[in-house]
């Protein structure tokens, strides 16, 4: 049986370059699954969990800010940060969650809400994935 080729590309390296049966991607308008012979498709990824299925096992990654292109059973994902479940540093994620919440509470004029929101989301996704 043929499989889907998945490439995850970061600015500093090609992170994943492997074949899988089936993947679930956190799209900007909701999670969606991609199986064999999916129609050509481009969308933005939201901060969330990327699931890659191979036989009966599932690799889970926390992913942040990127795009996914589906073309001829090749899925290319470009993203800034991606971490496998076991690479997540819980203490760091917690600290960054607290820092972001503090920033939002302090309600100073000069904070960059988009950025704080992004880092809060990132931390929450990491914690959620780790606690499963």
């Amino acid at each position: 049986m043929s499989k889907i080729h998945i490439k995850v590309i970061q600015p500093t390296q090609i992170r994943i370059d492997k074949e899988y049966d089936h993947v679930i991607v956190p799209g900007i308008d909701g999670d969606f699954g991609i199986s064999l012979d999916h129609t050509p498709f481009i969308t933005k990824i939201r901060t969330g969990v990327l699931q890659l299925f191979q036989n009966e096992t599932c690799d889970e990654y926390a992913i942040h800010d990127g795009f996914v292109t589906v073309e001829n059973n090749v899925i290319k994902i470009v993203c800034d940060t991606i971490e496998r479940k076991d690479e997540i540093d819980i203490a760091r994620a917690k600290a960054s969650k607290e820092r972001a919440e503090e920033r939002l509470k302090s309600s100073k004029e000069n904070i960059n809400f988009r950025r704080v929101e992004a880092s809060l989301k990132k931390a929450l996704v990491r914690l959620e994935l780790k606690s499963d």
């Binding site: 050509p40 481009i42 969308t43 933005k44 470009v78």
Partner: peptide
């Protein structure tokens, strides 16, 4: 690619976001 892609949410958003990323990586 010459393929006719489906864009989600819509092409303008994708252009904006892709453009941003393009500049990020170009500066890098």
């Amino acid at each position: 690619s010459k393929l006719d892609f489906i864009y989600e949410p819509d092409e303008d958003t994708i252009i904006y976001e892709l453009g941003r990323k393009y500049i990020h990586v170009d500066i890098w």
